[in-house]
Amino acid sequence: MTTSTFTSSAGASRILRSVWAAIKKIPPVYPLFFAIFISIGFLGQSYQTMPGILNFLRRAAPLAILAIGEMLVLATGGFDLSIGSIVTLVVLGSSKLLNNDPANAIPSILIMLGFGVLIGLINGTVVSYLKVPSFIATLGMLLLVKGGALYWVGGAPQGYLTDNWRFFGREYIENVPILGRFPVALLILIVIAAFSWFIFHRTNFGKQVLAIGDNVRASQLSGVRVRLVRTMAFVLSAVFAVIGGVLIGGYGGVNVTIGEGLEMQSIAACVVGGVMLTGGRGNVMNVVFGAFTMEAMFNLLNLLGLPKPYKDAVQGLIIIAAVAYIALSTRRKR
């Protein structure tokens, strides 16, 4: 009698333990996101409907795209602080290039993508060849791009963004089965995320990004072309920032501060998504949900009626807490 109780309780505890082991493997970003999202669902009725959820995802899409790009650079062990300024450049520059003529929409977006490639190449070159720490190099680029964009448009936004330019950020695909109206921005996020997932998790490039971030010296001695890989990460990050900028400009207004702080939001999204700021770890899906979590948190703060500065403070807390957590856990290992 006693024996059988003992064995059955041992069996139960074994099952519990394996369930617990499986739960422990779930990245913390998912329970965090769903907890916050469910609480905003209680506070704001619209989050309980399909259009409301899709609308939320549409608003979160640009940050998710920026965060994926940032993750590629963070995984190499670097930083890209220039992406917020790139968003500003895209919005201000496009408003000037469009010259209020819808026919210029596609050319202006292509020119912006060209700028993205150029900025990424410069970031990568300065970091790889001139050996400037990426934090400093891209901080310089942040100021250079922002200043350059403002100078180009003469200090204030010129004209407006035409409706066809705004298509990607603002419009919907109608009559999608079950979902109804499906935001174009969300579709773009899905395409970018799938592409990034593929190159990051399924190609040599992705493995080498992680290798560099984990141990740059060992990677170099094993034949990894460190400069090439690093530069490519910066180019992708800048190009994704341009795409994010087109989406942000699509539903936002034209103003000179539109991209401000997005680099920090992206880094926070990455950190929430489990990316280590010291490099060597990253996961595209987790980062996308990291961005969703950030957006949900901002919504929560709004619904609670807290003013905007709280948003910044919360971001700061997240970054500090995450970095402190990493520092503590590495110290424990020693």
Binding site: I199, R202, N204, Q208, S222
Partner: peptide, 10 residues
């Protein structure tokens, strides 16, 4: 992998 095509599928 380092000496193969950088876009090669792993």
């Amino acid at each position: 992998r380092a000496i193969q095509n950088i876009f090669g599928v792993i």
